[in-house]
């Protein structure tokens, strides 16, 4: 499997009137062909900013890539010009968003929008592009694609619109598809349809998928590997099974425990994480989770924790596993 994407020590900031908001503070991960990587975290943790930076969709300024490398298909795109990015977007990497209605042109027939995207990147006649558009609509399981192509976005339901978005994203056979909360706005039964479709397409076309979500259920059902983000940093990363069954970071542990399971009785209390995430205008010097962590020690507030290896391909950033840490602190399950 070849490597499609490598993000190394990425820092992204936004310059605002109040000061510099450090939205992403040193994120690294990589992604191989045909793999599904989930980036999980709460709102404001920097997961969407990370994804948008890979597409360079953030308006710069106010956004600024302070440091880091993004190697997409063996090419560093951090310094790519807007013109170069135009060629990359759609062809190498494309994106689907949370709200499909705001991403489709309301005044244009769905089929036209698709052929436009296809003809921008591929040399095709109008007829060929139209055929390709119909094939794509079939691929994403839209019934009566010929007729549907003539309709406008408002005539489609939310789930159907998301299918159109997926068809459009796939129109130039990208190597990487970024899905930013693709099912958050949809109902559970529609969510199940879309997740099934994404899985199927990933397998069929060998497209790598980055799935950005806050829903751990979606992660469990789709992801091969998981990156957990908190306050602009990766706190833990690894294979999905390791993250769910052997979480190492106190934040991941608490997050998994805070979800009620169907076996839980009403008298059991949910584990809750006190407090709120830190303000990224003035991010804490030490571990960003320290103020909410029940195992926090003095060092956690003073220095950012180093990354440690939990197992093969499973990493975490925390002071607890450090060899000098007293064992009674690190021991004991939460």
């Amino acid at each position: 499997m070849s490597k499609i994407l490598e993000v190394k020590d990425l820092h992204v900031s936004f310059d605002t009137y109040a000061g510099e908001v450090k939205a992403v503070r040193g994120v690294s991960f990589d992604l191989h062909e045909g793999e599904v990587l989930a980036i999980v975290g709460e709102s404001g943790c920097g997961k969407s900013v990370t994804a948008q930076t890979i597409m360079k969709l953030n308006p710069m300024p106010p956004a600024r890539i302070v440091n880091g490398e993004i190697i997409l298909c063996d090419k560093d795109i951090v310094n790519a010009t807007e013109k170069e990015m135009m060629a990359i977007r759609g062809k190498d990497v494309s994106m689907i968003f949370q709200d499909p209605m705001t991403c489709l042109n309301p005044t244009m027939q769905v089929g036209k929008q698709l052929t436009e995207a296809i003809r921008n990147h591929r040399k095709m006649t109008k007829e060929e592009a139209h055929k390709e558009a119909i094939r794509l609509l079939e691929l994403v399981r839209i019934p009566n694609p010929e007729q549907r192509a003539k309709q406008y976005p408002h005539e489609f339901s939310g789930g159907m619109r998301q299918r159109v978005m997926i068809a459009m994203a796939l129109s130039c056979a990208p190597k990487l598809l970024i899905a930013d909360e693709p099912t958050t706005a949809l109902d559970v039964t529609i969510q199940a349809q879309i997740m099934e479709l994404l899985k199927e397409i990933g397998k069929k076309t060998n497209t790598a998928i980055i799935m950005i979500t806050h829903d751990l259920g979606v992660v469990a059902s789709m992801a091969d590997r998981v990156v957990v983000m908190y306050a602009g940093k990766v706190v833990e990363s690894g294979v999905a099974r390791d993250i769910f069954y052997h979480p190492a970071h106190p934040y991941t542990k608490a997050l998994l425990k805070s979800l009620p399971t169907t076996e839980m009785s009403r008298d059991e209390r949910l584990v809750s994480i006190p407090g709120t995430p830190p303000d990224l205008l003035n991010p804490p010097v030490g571990c960003p989770f320290a103020s909410r962590c029940k195992y926090a020690m003095k060092i956690c507030y003073e220095a950012p924790p180093a990354e440690f290896e939990v197992g093969k391909g499973h990493h975490g950033s925390c002071w607890l596993p450090h060899p000098d840490c007293p064992k009674d602190q690190a021991g004991g399950e939460q």
Partner: peptide
């Protein structure tokens, strides 16, 4: 009920 994703990869 079956559409709800469970946060557990094996069960999923």
């Amino acid at each position: 009920l079956s559409a709800v994703p469970i946060p557990d990869p094996d069960k999923e």
